[in-house]
Design a protein around this nucleic acid. Structure first.
Lengths: 142, 142
DNA sequence: CCTAGTGTTCTACCGCGATAGTACAGTAGT
DNA sequence: ACTACTGTACTATCGCGGTAGAACACTAGG
């Protein structure tokens, strides 16, 4: 599993970690019984304070996604996949709703919104292709 | 001009005020030379601290949207409409981009995104209709 | 047994958004 | 001149997200 933290897009770091773990479970990148990276390792990987990771894991336990195995680590619970898959789209919907509400409140037309969405989707695909070709290049030169 | 503040959708209040004034100028709800509501009145109207409004107006001056008229108030500058109209879609695009980036990073397909957008647009229209009929009802019973 | 690795908890500190209250300089209208 | 409004500036305080560092209880493995 591989996460990326965006510093200050408004969303707290601990919440970003929380969301991405849930997405990983929903996408089966994390399976039932799998151990999540340790607090200290994750903190090092993300260049973030261990307490912040700990906070995220605590929230994930409260949500029933992770269960602690004393002295060993945190494992994905059997109920997690179900919960995470049903939450999957809701997590995005919630954020999307705030943006669209602001747009509509301020006289942006539905067509303008659709146009923005399409252009941004296209832009994201272009970025991914770029990264993909960079990976290939890196592999070739290796 | 009428603004609505969403407490804790992540965006600071002073920034929400700032954005909505810009939208109001772009939509010609505020015209060149118009006075923006006074710091204290706006603060009372939004149930918010005067300092917070003052901060927003200070930023709007820095952006060249408002100009102070000593002892009288803050007026919309002649350059404001041009600036605000060109910023109009960009302000939404910026927020939309963050949401779509998270979605794509976590294996949400473009079609799922389009579907979310449509269902949320529909939901917003439904809410507006509801409010409109409430207004009519209020007028009838008055 | 001992070491190294788990998660957990606690205190201290910082920056930022926001509130609260006060004070000051300038203008409009009477 | 006086009053009532403008905007501006300042200090103090609060909550929250985040960092920093230490301490604790537990377990797996040599």
């Amino acid at each position: 599993m591989q996460l990326h933290i965006e510093t200050s897009n408004g969303i707290p770091i601990y919440e970003q970690i929380c969301r991405q773990v849930k997405f990983a479970v929903a996408n089966k990148a994390l399976q039932v019984g799998d151990h999540v990276p340790s607090v200290r390792e994750m903190a090092g990987r993300l260049a973030v304070n261990p307490n912040t990771v700990s906070r995220a894991y605590r929230d994930l336990q409260a949500d029933g996604v992770l269960i602690p195995i004393r002295g060993t680590g945190l494992a994905v619970t059997p109920e997690a996949p179900g919960k995470c898959q049903s939450e999957r789209l809701d997590m995005i919907r919630e954020r999307l709703r705030l943006v669209l509400a602001e747009a509509r409140h301020n006289q942006i037309t539905p067509d303008e919104i659709r146009q923005l969405v399409e252009s941004e989707l296209q832009r994201l695909d272009a970025l991914e292709d770029e990264n993909a070709s960079q990976l290939v290049t890196a592999e070739e030169t290796a």
